[in-house]
């Protein structure tokens, strides 16, 4: 009997070390590619990822208050930097895992201006959705692109701000806006809505660098380290490119 109990205790003690999942907090815009990456990781024998998608600022607040994530895939660089500065994350682990691109998308009943984004202000349009420039990096990029083409003030009455780029995209998909400036990754979704899109010239806005970081309080730091390695490898890189991201670049 005693031997049996000790045997089971050994099994219970060893099992988590082998299969303990890696908990990943991910910005909503990167959820779809991360799910593919998780599948590819599992196919190579990696542990399952436990994915929590959400807004980066909310994730930050949860992490500071003890949320048990291992890896944080943020939508920007500011929040990971701040976590490092405050001692919640491991500085040496920070890197840009993806650089996002912006597209201008015209919904099913709308059309794109002939000369792309620059012609938007003079084009028939019923509301333009962008992510909130104060909250979301894609919103900031959208604002920069509209500023750079001299259209921000002309369009400001038509602009609807989503909480994040995902919500801006959802306004387009439900037909509540005719146009949207969203992440290029949405063009690769299986269930992308009807409509046309055109890439926004990357010189019109700062690159949307998204940083990854391993948390100081990670319950599974070894699993986190291995997953981050995989994220920087060629298999993940191929998925990233397919979703319209540029792959990881040297830390800025």
């Amino acid at each position: 009997m005693t031997r049996w109990i000790i045997g089971w205790m050994l099994v219970l003690a060893v099992t988590p070390a082998i299969a303990e999942p890696v908990r990943v907090a991910v910005a909503s815009n990167f959820l779809a590619p991360l799910e593919r990456i998780a599948d590819a990781y599992a196919a190579q024998g990696g542990p399952a990822l436990r994915i929590s998608a959400g807004a980066t600022g909310q994730h930050y607040a949860q992490i500071v208050n003890g949320a048990p994530y291992d890896v944080f895939l943020a939508a920007d660089q500011a929040r990971p930097e701040r976590l490092v500065a405050e001692g919640y994350a491991r500085p040496e682990s920070r890197f840009s895992y993806a650089v996002g691109r912006l597209v201008l998308w015209a919904g099913a009943k709308a059309s794109l201006p002939d000369n792309g984004l620059a012609g938007l202000a003079g084009h028939p349009l019923r509301r333009l959705a962008i992510a909130n420039p104060e909250l979301a990096p894609y919103g900031q990029a959208a604002r920069q692109a509209l500023d750079a083409t001299g259209q921000w003030s002309a369009l400001s009455d038509d602009i609807i701000q989503g909480q994040n780029v995902g919500q801006a995209f959802q306004y387009l998909a439900t037909g509540n806006v005719s146009h949207a400036l969203v992440a290029a990754s949405y063009t690769r979704l299986d269930n992308a809505p009807d409509g046309d899109w055109v890439a926004v010239d990357a010189r019109l806005h700062d690159p949307v660098r998204q940083d990854a970081i391993i948390l100081e309080q990670a319950p599974n730091p070894e699993g986190a380290r291995r997953f981050v390695e995989f994220l920087q490898g060629p298999v993940a890189g191929e998925i990233l490119t397919r979703f319209g991201y540029q792959t990881a670049v040297p830390r800025s």
Partner: peptide, 8 residues
């Protein structure tokens, strides 16, 4: 409130 939390 949500946005204030989001922008820290």
């Amino acid at each position: 409130i949500y946005e204030h939390v989001e922008t820290l």
